[in-house]
């Protein structure tokens, strides 16, 4: 992590970004989640890690209890189309409608638009640089805070989407 990213972080006037890094479901591949947790912390965020094997409902509950800005979901077992939307569903049910939900893992291109429609953004694949992900999160939170200056204000507007510059999704999987 470059110190420049750290500086960018500090320039945000509001509270530090609180982020829950979570692995919903039966997936022990935690290398990426652990690396990202450290990277987020180095970028000045407050990081909560779910540990392994929580259900999607438990992940949503943790997000509410910890009052996080962002839930970063990581799955490498192919179950993202089931587990990610479930987290979003439980988040809405529990009053976390405005929580930003970001996905990552082995996610085929053809699944990405579907996930985005369900409110899971980012959907970063293997090899994405840490900076890309950190910048994406910082940017998403900044936009949300501009849109919702007071926390807890409900909005019917769609969440802002900012696909990272370096990842062009030019075509769909057949």
């Amino acid at each position: 992590m470059s110190s420049q990213t750290l500086e960018n972080q500090r320039s945000i006037p509001q509270r530090k970004i609180r982020i829950l890094v979570a692995k919903p479901g039966l997936d022990g591949h935690d290398r990426g989640a652990l690396v990202l947790s450290r990277a987020f912390r180095d970028a000045g965020m407050e990081v909560i890690y779910s540990g392994l094997l929580p259900t999607p409902e438990q992940v949503a509950q943790m997000a509410i209890d910890e009052d996080v800005d962002v839930v970063a979901l990581s799955l490498l077992n192919g179950a993202h189309m089931t587990a990610f939307p479930k987290v979003v569903h439980f988040l809405k049910q529990k009053g976390g409608r405005e929580t930003i939900v970001i996905g990552g893992g082995i996610i085929p291109d053809s699944d990405k638009p579907k996930l985005e429609r369900m409110g899971i953004i980012g959907n970063f694949g293997p090899g994405t640089s840490l900076k890309t992900i950190v910048d994406f999160i910082t940017d998403s939170v900044k936009k949300k805070r501009e849109r919702l200056p007071k926390s807890g204000v409900k909005s019917r507007k769609k969440k802002p989407r900012t696909p990272p510059k370096s990842r062009k999704q030019t075509s769909r999987q057949k």
Binding site: G25, L26, D27, G78, A79, T82
Partner: peptide
């Protein structure tokens, strides 16, 4: 598959999507 590796049957709630 993951449910088998963790010792869950295919019809378990925990196996959904996996």
């Amino acid at each position: 598959d993951m449910p088998t590796l963790y010792g869950y049957d295919a019809d378990s709630d925990r196996a959904e999507g996996e």
